[in-house]
Design a protein around this nucleic acid. Structure first.
Lengths: 335, 335
DNA sequence: CTGAAAGCGCTTACAG
DNA sequence: CTGAAAGCGCTTACAG
């Protein structure tokens, strides 16, 4: 590494003081003589100087960096959210550090601690829900934080979520409209902290009721992704198996399709299907898959907006809010 | 925000000097009295102290952070690479800042400059190829950098790449083995800087030759993703259209499948298909898609390993190398 | 075994 | 219109 050139070198070269160079860098040339500017500009050019942001951050107590802790960057939804956050931050000259908590509270805690030690200006997190005390602490300290995809009961942090009940409602209506009556749903483990799961399942039940349909508990199967094949077998061993199935998310959908393939079911004749999450192959699958899309980009952008607002307005005590986004039904031919 | 507690506060509370607290923090308690340790430990606990890493970074000239500049985080390959890098860095207590260059040299330059100003310890980049002078500068300054997925001719930076020619070879062999003779390939624009494209196309030609097959230029179509439908139409308007097609990547594959669907082609009867990139739906598509997988995780891990090695051994002048990774044929039923 | 002092590279009142 | 000085929160020789 070459020895770095500092503000002192520039000052010396330009024949002015460090203060003046600093003023120049921060565009505070209210009363700066034109020739001083020129000299500094030239010195910077000649030396190839670029300010050390770490030093600036130390002084200014702002790193222009935020942290994003996702459950897993491999999920398409997370990827889209990150992309949107990155785009938004980029416009505002913020950088983003990405972390994977893998739904493990211990990892999440470690990342939050590290990010704070690194003095990031704020954090967007898909909360595991397993660090309630930590969240409370952050709130008490008025630390800028936004929750994404999930809420944590009792924690007053603004949260960006899909209108999950609406998503299920959209699906159920679609099935009912086409005359299906034996409607089931497949879900990963319904864990209390994981808002999308609880809300989508609740929404599913409510929607059936609203449509005056009976909810058959035996048509609602939930369990680890790895166990879904077995769960499906059992589901279809029943006397009257469901004729329509809602997949809680993209990963569940893939499992269902696996099963459908093995059983050589004909969609939608033997089984109608709707998946929440507009998977990349929905339009090219045979038959095309009816899905419910999440506006992931808008959601990511909203979270970034909220966070930067909190960062810039630390003094104002904002009321935490839940921001709901509209799911969108994309009708294709699997129903 | 609460006022942050600093090392001075801890020192005061524990009744020792800042130096001693610092020693403690850095586990340099070679000769530290047991009771001093205890006192410091307790003070830290009581105050809820956590060191300010920005201040440490300024002094130590190391931020324990690296930058990753991808072409687009929305590509599955990039996502997997990032995940692998993140995992590896995490073990070594490094953080990663993710940036999207969108294949725009201007954006790439801006990010590289910003990351350096932020004093990141090194950068992994999917190079656009459009900033040759900048790359040269970095090399000259012995700045830790690793290229991913692409090489830049004339720039001596270690690069992690798929064995692209092998990937095409695998595909061609598979087609030939099954008796196909009219083999084509669809590619995005063949731009010189984008190594995977040039190498896969070259590999395709070479492989045909090696199998003593003729290469029909009219069976090689390349162009923007948005234009592929039209390209395909023209391709199949020919008197003797290809009977087997290699998709250069996942995005091309999706376009081909779109066309296949519109034309109601029967795969593999009317058209055999192989795609480079093992898409998520390969196993559930009808028919199942034969693909060639990239070991994205291994590649990401390797890049991280290389970069951290460079960071830790800045003094040793390492020879830049190209690391090739083996593509893997996953035979399913689309051939 | 522990502390005083200098310094990392900036910014920011304040003085002139 | 510009500069000297203090300070951000650490670390690190060095002295004792």
């Amino acid at each position: 590494m070459m020895k770095a050139v500092t503000i002192s070198d520039v000052a010396k070269q330009a024949g002015v003081s460090k203060s003046t160079v600093s003023q120049f860098l921060n565009q505070r040339y209210d009363y700066m003589a034109e020739k001083t500017k020129k000299r500094i500009e030239q010195a910077i050019d000649e030396l190839g100087y670029s300010p050390n942001i770490v030093a600036r951050s130390l002084k200014q107590k702002s790193t222009m960096t935020i942290g994003v802790i996702v459950a897993n960057i491999l999920h398409v939804f997370s990827t889209q959210v990150i992309r949107a956050i990155e785009d938004y931050c980029n416009e505002s000259n913020f950088h983003v550090i990405v972390c994977n908590a893998d739904d493990e509270p211990a990892k999440e805690k470690r990342y939050i601690d590290m990010l704070r030690a690194k003095q990031v200006d704020g954090i967007i997190v898909f909360p595991t829900g397993g660090n309630v005390d930590l969240y409370k602490d952050l709130v008490k300290q008025n630390y800028p934080i936004v929750f994404m995809d999930r809420m944590v009961p009792g924690i007053s942090v603004s949260s960006v979520l899909l209108d999950n009940e609406k998503a299920s409602d959209l699906a159920v209506r679609t099935f009912v409209k086409k005359g299906y009556t034996r409607i089931g749903m497949i879900s990963p483990p319904i864990v209390k902290n994981i808002t999308p799961r609880t809300e989508r399942v609740d929404g599913f039940k409510k929607a059936l009721k609203k449509q005056q349909m009976t909810f058959y508990p035996e048509y609602l199967a939930s369990g680890e992704i790895a166990d879904i094949q077995v769960m499906m077998e059992q589901l279809f061993k029943q006397a009257n198996p469901p004729t329509a199935l809602l997949a809680l998310n993209d990963r569940v959908l893939v499992e269902i399709l696996q099963f459908v393939k093995a059983q050589q079911f004909n969609i939608p004749h033997d089984l109608a299907l709707i998946g929440i999450d507009d998977v990349s192959f929905a339009g090219i699958y045979n038959p095309e898959l009816t899905t419910i899309a999440q506006p992931a980009f808008e959601m990511g952008k909203k979270a970034a907006e909220l966070l930067l607002y909190l960062i810039r307005n630390k003094n104002v005590q904002e009321e935490a809010r839940v921001y709901r986004f509209e799911p969108k039904l994309i009708e294709r031919t699997s129903v």
